[in-house]
Design a protein around this nucleic acid. Sequence first.
DNA 1: AGGCCTCATGTAAGCGGTTACATCTTGAGG
DNA 2: CCTCAAGATGTAACCGCTTACATGAGGCCT
Lengths: 356, 356
Amino acid sequence: MTIHDVAARAGVSVATVSRVLNGKEVVREETLKQVLAAAKALHYVPNVAARSLSIQRSQTIGIVLPDVHGEFFSEVIRGIDVAARREGYHILVSGSHSDVGEMLEVLDAMRGRVDGLVVMAPDVAHDLLHESLPPNLPLVLLNSTDGGVDGGRDAITIDNHGGAQAMMRYLAGLGHTGIAFIKGPAQNADARERLRGYRGVMRKLGIRATRRLELAGDFTEESGRAAAQKILNVAPRPTAIFAANDSMAVGALAALAEAGVAVPAEMSVAGFDDIPIARYVTPPLTTIRVDIADLGRRAFGLLRGAIAQPAAPAGRRDCIATTLVERKSCCSPEIRMPTSRRPDRKPRGRKKGEES
Amino acid sequence: MTIHDVAARAGVSVATVSRVLNGKEVVREETLKQVLAAAKALHYVPNVAARSLSIQRSQTIGIVLPDVHGEFFSEVIRGIDVAARREGYHILVSGSHSDVGEMLEVLDAMRGRVDGLVVMAPDVAHDLLHESLPPNLPLVLLNSTDGGVDGGRDAITIDNHGGAQAMMRYLAGLGHTGIAFIKGPAQNADARERLRGYRGVMRKLGIRATRRLELAGDFTEESGRAAAQKILNVAPRPTAIFAANDSMAVGALAALAEAGVAVPAEMSVAGFDDIPIARYVTPPLTTIRVDIADLGRRAFGLLRGAIAQPAAPAGRRDCIATTLVERKSCCSPEIRMPTSRRPDRKPRGRKKGEES
DNA sequence: AGGCCTCATGTAAGCGGTTACATCTTGAGG
DNA sequence: CCTCAAGATGTAACCGCTTACATGAGGCCT
C-alpha cells in the first residue's frame, strides 16, 4: 500500500494525498474527505523510511546511557518517553556499554538514524567525549559536566553539590560529627560534586579531619555493602553514613542489618537520588530527592529546542533542583546506646516522612 | 556526504562503493582499498533512511511495554538491547501506556518503522490484543498468554505456575499452613497463573479453606503494603505471606516493619521475580527467580527467527524456567514467639542464601 | 472582454541508497 | 587469432514520499 494506491482510489494525485495527510496545505473539503476515505479503506500507513529520506528527519531521538537497567536509568527513559511521545517523537535507546569504545560505536550507529541525541556518559573523560560526539547533531548531555569543560554543548545537570550540602547540614544539625561518606566512581561528575559537598560541609563545620571518612564505591548496591562493612570496623565508629547514591545506601542498609547494627539508632544512613525503592527499604531511606523523570522530560525539552533551531548556539544549561526527603533512616546520635546492640522498641528522634 | 561523493573521490561508481560497504559481492582488492580510504577521509556515514527505503528493512525492532520503569521492565529492555546490538539491530521502545487505546496507537506508529515487535501486554484482553496487532509483522508476545487463546503468535512465557507451586511447597515444607496470597491484577496472565499455583497447592495440602487468604494487589509496592496491613488484622493471623511479585513483597515488608512485626520470626514473606533489589531489602527476600534479562534475550532470538523466515508458521513457544532462591525472609512458624513482638537477637531457622 | 490574481491540484525531480542488467576486461581454450 | 566465459565495474531504475513549479479554472477589475 503506497501513496499511489491511495491517490488512485481517491481519484487524485499523490501530491494531493500527501497534502491531505500532512495537513499543512489547503485542500478542498470534498477532496480531503475522499482521500481520507481512500486511505482508511486501504489501511494505508505511510512508509517512514521514504518520508524520512525525503524530509531529512526521522522524528526519532536517540538515548545513550551507561546502562539501561537500574532504577535511575529507567526513570530517565520513562521521562523522555512520555515527553517525546507527546510530540510525536520516537526514542531509540541503547545502554549497557561495557566500555567507552562500545559507546562510541553506538553513537556512530545512531548517526543518521536520529534527529537528536540525549547522552549520559558521566564516566567518560570530557575531552574524549566531546571530540567523539558528532559535531552537527543536536545533542544534550545528561549529568556529564561539572561546570567546567563542556564543549559548548547543551546540558542538564543535577544540583549535586547543593543536595549534598543540604544532607550534610541536616546530619550535622542532628548532632552527627562522625559522618562517613561512600563515594561514587572517581571519574563520575555527579559523584565528584557530591563528594565536594560532603567535604565542604565537613570542613566548614570544623570537624576534625580524623573524623572524616571516605570510602570507595561505584554506585552499585554491592559496593555500598562492602563500604559499610569497612566502616563498622573503624574506631571511633562514625554515627552516620552518607552514600553518594541510593543504591549504595541500600547496600549499606543490608550490610548493617546483617551485622545487627540498628538503623537509625546505632547508625544513621542517608542516600541521594530518591529512587522509587527508597521508601520501601527498612527503615525508609532519608535521601535527597531528584525528580528523575523530570530530568528526562527537560532533557527532551532542551533537545526539542535544539532540533527546531539548529542554528542557535548551544551551551544551554538546565539544573535540576534537589530536595531533602526525611524518612526514617537518620536520627540524633545522642540516643545511641553505648554498649547494648539492641535499640528500644522504636528508636526516637524520628521525623515524619512525606509519604503516606 | 553521500555515496556519490565517496564514489567520486575513489574514482569508481556508486554501485562499487555500495558493494564494498556491504561486503556481499566481490570487488578487486585495490578498488576496495580506495573506496575504504575515500569513505574514511570523507567521514562517510550511510543514510539509514535511504537504505531502509531501498532494502525494505530498518534493522530496528520495537518494544512495547506496559511501562518502562520498574525493575522488571528495565531488565527486559536490557536483555533485548544486549542481544539486539550483537546482531546489529536497534531498538525502539515505548512504554507508559495509561490505557489500551494509547498502546494501540503506539503499535500503529511503530508500524513501518520496525522489522519486528516484542509486545508485552499482560493486562490486555487477548481477543482485543490479537485483533489489533498488525497481522503481517513478525512479533513475539511476552507473558501475554496463559496457554489458552494466543492468536497463533510466537510467545515467551514464564513458568509462573511451576514457580508458584515451588514456593508454596517450600513454605508448606517449613510448616506453614496459614499462608496469605497477595494477588496481581485480575486480567494479568502471569498473575492468574501464580494464583493458580497458590490455590492448587493449598488445596492439595488439604489446608482448610478458612486458612486461605487472598488479597487484592496490582503489582505495585503500595498495593503490597496495603495488603499486608489488612493481613495483620486477620484472625487467626497467617504465618506467611506469598506475594505474586517482588514489588508487592517489598511493600509488605515495609508495612510489617512499620507495624513492628518481625520478619521472618513472626511472619514469613516470599515474592516472585527476583528483581535486583530483592537481595538488599531487610531481610533479604526469599523469592522465585526469573532470569528476566534472559527473557528479553530469548524474546529477541525468537523474533530474529521470525524476521529471517517470515513465511514460517508462527506459534512458537518458549518457556522460561524458574528457580527458588532461599534468602532470609522465611522460616518455620514454630519458632514464632506467641506474645512478645521482639524476636531474639537473631532469628533462628535461617538458611544460607545463594548470594555472597 | 481581456488580463491578472488566487486557489486547488497535477507533474516530476529529487532524497540516498540497492541491485538487476549492461558493459568491458582479461585470459583460457580451440 | 577468435570466441567465449567469468569476473569486475558501471548505468540507471526503483524504493515511497515531499515539494517546487507548472497548470488550469474561476473570479474580479478596468
